[in-house]
Design a protein around this nucleic acid. Structure first.
Length: 256
DNA sequence: ATGGTCGGCAACCGA
């Protein structure tokens, strides 16, 4: 089973890239964030044409998540309380008997802002959701744009960025709670080397060229599933980053 | 150097 996560920063702006990537890599599941498209305008048939099932929830201009799968998704939940709050940031569906959680975690703006408190609260709500609905002793996959680089190896300048949004002690404490519950960073398990990024700060002059990157897109799994992971990588295909604002996909393979 | 540049969508917001 092959699973990927990709922040597309507008699905319609990058539709060809996503379709080509699906056909090239042929993952069983692709979790997408920042679709930026309302459900009525979602390009559903383009994905059905290449034999992917779709689950999506969007809104005008911002946010939006989608899940694509080769086999039909089951037990679909959108948002924390199903089909209402935070649906454009959270899709849960079971594919090939494995519950997949696709999240677009709030970005957080600045550490002294309400938006940052909202982000921390969001992590807490998700943690509560996991505790209530899932067991760390059973396979569970959590993928998405977490908007947090977990470790110093995951940012281009850990000393300069310490305390910034996306690399803040409170965010690291939030992630630690998920680890404590039983989730494993599957990419890191297979890739110990520092400096492997999924996002580059295009707001800094020459940020992409200067490799000013962050690893904020993740695939985490409970131990029974992580034990069956055989490979994980970040797709470095240059075509995926035609635009400076592009994230790039993170991929993991499991022997199930 | 504490900046800049994207996408959506039509003035700025969010990242």
């Amino acid at each position: 089973m092959k699973v990927a996560s990709f922040n597309v920063n507008s699905l319609r702006a990058r539709l060809d890239i996503v379709l080509e990537w699906l056909q090239r890599e042929s993952p069983d599941v692709l979790c997408v964030q920042e679709t930026k498209v309302v459900d009525e305008d979602f390009p559903k048939s383009a994905f059905e044409d290449i034999h992917y099932h779709t689950v999506f929830r969007g809104q005008k201009s911002y946010n939006g998540v989608a899940l694509f799968s080769k086999t039909p998704p089951e037990n679909i939940h959108i948002g924390f309380d199903n089909n209402s709050s935070e649906g454009t940031r959270l899709i849960i569906a079971t594919v090939n008997s494995i519950p997949i959680v696709n999240t677009y975690i709030p970005q957080g703006y600045k550490p002294d802002s309400d938006k940052f408190r909202y982000k921390l609260d969001w992590f807490q709500r998700l943690h509560d959701y996991f505790k209530k609905n899932f067991s760390p002793d059973k396979p569970l996959l959590w993928a998405g744009d977490f908007n947090v680089a977990p470790e110093p190896a995951d940012v281009y300048d850990p000393e300069k960025l310490a305390g910034h949004v996306g690399f803040h002690p409170d965010e690291h404490a939030a992630l630690r709670k998920f680890r404590k519950w039983g989730l494993v960073d599957v990419f890191r398990k297979h890739q110990p080397e520092a400096g492997q990024y999924t996002f580059w700060d295009y707001r800094l002059r020459g940020g992409v060229k200067r490799n000013l990157g962050w690893r904020v897109d993740h695939i985490w799994a409970t131990k029974p599933l992580a034990e069956r992971s055989v490979r994980a990588w970040i797709d470095k295909e240059p075509r995926l980053r035609e635009k400076p604002s592009d994230h790039t996909p993170v991929v993991a393979e499991f022997s199930i």
